[in-house]
Nucleic acid binder design. Structure first.
Lengths: 266, 266
DNA sequence: TCCTTTTGCGTACAGTGTACGAAGTTCGGG
DNA sequence: CCCGAACTTCGTACACTGTACGCAAAAGGA
């Protein structure tokens, strides 16, 4: 009954409109001076910055500098930092088209996982966002639909489909995080894992004195010899993915509605 | 040959010494005034703060305030913010003793996973740290040894043991992240998922106009009806864990050195 | 007692996100 | 044609961050 009754969260509405901006009629109430740039350019600039530096040093001022505009001008395109990152996520998600999902269930899940893995490789900052839940933009929506289509018709329930997709996506994020961390540790310190260990070994050996860590000691040594590093993220990804897909496939096959082999239902 | 030849990274050495402080002889070159508090108190204060507020608003000044000391005094106990968080991680990791690992392999992996899950529940900020690799402290080392002991003797190689443990830990972190995000979304906006959807539905429906998302639409509706929310993190955890453990167990059973059932080797 | 070491901490600086308001630009309506 | 309304741009300002620096006070060893 109030004159304006449901602006529950104005910036949420505005952000949603920005996310879907390409499918929405332009507001075109343009009265003032022409805008120097566009929302797309701001988002692209943000992505470029995050690609270069990561999110910990990501700042609105740097985004503005890259565009050659003042800091506060950015706020005429985008409500704030958090929302900009939300737009960047959706944009990055839509960067590469989703590959066709062919073959049986494990093959399809492999395709999904590798697509996500590659995406994290291109945009490692996606792993740094600490957001409650990403904004529901068009590319996020397409992504979810695509992921679900990989398990569609396999005979499991809708809820189980969601859980399978969540499991795969979570696994890939986790593996990609390890990969990024390993890379960054090496780059930041300028030291290989081996060199780092050699330097800190005196103190650590004094303190861990041998007998207390029989298994870790053995396993750590094996890893070191096999990889010349503490871990091999690429292999860990492949290993983990194989196990996860295995677990999913045997669940699907044990499912009551499972119709003998073909991943597509009638 | 230089007077001081290997202070490759002085604060790294200092941090390592701080991590292992309880197993190291005290430096005791104490000449100045008595310290007002202790490293343990600083770390505990940091953990309390992070438990209360999370890491995004975590600040050295707040830690100092909780201790009733000046900001810069914190720096006489701890080299800096990042290192303090490293100490907090190790401390939190050692908070609860590791439960005994009994039963067969899947049972043991369940125990490990639930222990980690509970820990993330007590200290959600552990999921927010964006560190290259956690500092190798005593409790982190114990944790790794304990995790490995869950798969020790199952007949797989040392490297595979490491990969299995990495897989489990990564999965739990990923599931816990979903749980934390869901909780925070609900708390922050004060809206249930249902209410949020109801409010934003007009715009979203206008833009997603029905036919484009056949599977997501169906699945989303099923989730909504089953959970009254977009997802159920607890169930997703259980479902995913079952699949992951399944995949691991079948791998172990297919392993050439697998000796019929008993998870412990001679 | 005096000197050296160490703690505590006030101040300062470079950085952050963003609220506010002034100035300039464009268009619609009269 | 012209003027006011609407809009963009962006300088300034504020509250906040981590932490470098230096000074004062405290304590132990000589």
């Amino acid at each position: 009954m109030a004159p304006e009754d449901a602006p529950v969260d104005a910036t949420a509405d505005r952000t949603l409109a920005l996310l879907w901006r390409h499918k929405l009629p332009e507001p075109t109430g343009s009265r003032g001076p022409k805008q120097k740039t566009t929302v797309d350019a701001v988002v692209a600039s943000g992505i470029a910055l995050a690609d270069d530096e990561g999110l910990e040093t990501f700042s609105m001022r740097k985004v503005a500098d890259r565009l050659g505009i003042g800091v506060m001008s950015v706020y005429t395109y985008v409500p704030g930092r958090e929302e900009l990152i939300g737009l960047m996520i959706d944009q990055a998600t839509g960067e590469k088209p989703h590959p066709a999902l062919e073959g049986n269930l494990p093959a399809r899940l492999e395709i999904v996982a590798h697509h996500l893995w590659d995406e994290y490789g291109r945009h490692p900052w996606l792993l740094q966002v600490d957001t409650s839940r990403p904004w529901l933009g068009p590319n996020i929506a397409d992504r979810y639909e695509w992921e679900l289509s990989a398990v569609e018709g396999s005979g499991i329930s809708d809820i189980e489909m969601d859980q399978v997709v969540t499991l795969i996506a979570g696994f890939v994020a986790s593996a990609a995080r390890s990969a990024r961390d390993a890379k960054r540790t090496a780059e930041r310190s300028g030291l290989s894992d081996e060199a780092w260990w050699a330097i800190n070994a005196p103190l650590l050996e004094r303190v861990m004195d041998g007998a207390d860590y029989p298994i870790s000691g053995r396993v750590g040594q094996a890893s070191g010899e096999a990889y010349n590093a503490a871990s091999n993220p690429q292999l860990a990804f492949r290993f983990g993915l194989a196990r996860v897909i295995d677990g999913i496939v045997s669940f699907v096959e044990a499912s009551p509605a499972h119709d003998s082999g073909d991943p597509r239902s009638a």
